[in-house]
Computed example of a mutant assay.
Amino acid sequence: METEEIVHKLEAKGIKPTSNRILVMKTLVNEQNPLSLKDLEQKMVSMDKSSIFRTLTLFLEHDAVHAFEDGRGILNYEVCEEEGECDHHDGHIHFYCESCHRSFCMEDIHIPSFELPEGFYPHSVSFVIKGECPECRKRLR
């Protein structure tokens, strides 16, 4: 995705497109898998951890990214595909590979619908399956 498209994406979410914000979003967009803060640090050595974290926090507040816990207690971030405000209708499961430690979006497998008991209101839903990705499975055989 080009810088111009990143700027448009950020502005559509109500985020002022600074150079750090553009860089973080571009890194997330260009990856095929969700990334943790540590992953982003390793890919963006020119930016310090606190700047990346502040940017991710802002992105979460504006629904520019979604975060999910990968089953190890580590948040992974993925870009929200919605223009403007997100209604979180595209909830999908994630897969965490215990061998290579990568997370994958399973966008075609949606989180099953459920009904909570009266008085309970969910703020987020996360569904993570742990195992081995095809690449690691092949390597381990």
Rank of each mutant, 00 (worst) to 15 (best):
V45Q: 09
D63E: 15
Q32G: 02
D90W: 12
T3Y: 04
L58I: 08
C100M: 13
S36V: 02
V65S: 08
L35A: 03
Q32L: 02
K38C: 08
K38R: 12
I22D: 08
Q32C: 00
Y77P: 00
L28D: 01
D87Q: 11
K9M: 15
S99Y: 12
L116G: 04
I6L: 10
I74W: 07
E98K: 03
E83H: 14
F120E: 10
I15P: 11
F127L: 10
I15V: 13
E82R: 11
P122H: 07
S99L: 13
H62S: 11
K16V: 14
L75F: 09
F120P: 05
P117Y: 01
C80P: 07
E69H: 08
E85Q: 13
E81Q: 09
C136W: 04
H94E: 02
E82C: 06
F127A: 03
I6N: 05
R21A: 13
H89G: 15
H88S: 11
L58W: 08
A67N: 03
P17I: 04
D90I: 07
H8W: 09
R72L: 09
I129D: 03
E83P: 08
E69D: 15
Y121E: 15
L58G: 07
H66K: 13
C86Q: 02
C97Y: 02
V29R: 12
E78K: 08
K130M: 15
A12H: 04
F120A: 04
S19G: 01
L23G: 03
H94L: 01
K49A: 03
I111E: 12
D87R: 06
D87P: 02
L35K: 05
R21W: 06
H89P: 13
Q42N: 15
I15F: 07
K38Y: 15
T55C: 07
K9G: 05
V7F: 03
H92F: 07
E115P: 07
E83L: 12
H62M: 12
I6S: 07
C136V: 06
T27V: 04
I22V: 15
Q32K: 11
K130C: 06
C100F: 09
N30R: 12
E5C: 07
Y96E: 00
C97D: 02
H92P: 09
F53R: 11
S124N: 03
L75P: 06
Y77K: 04
E83S: 14
E2V: 03
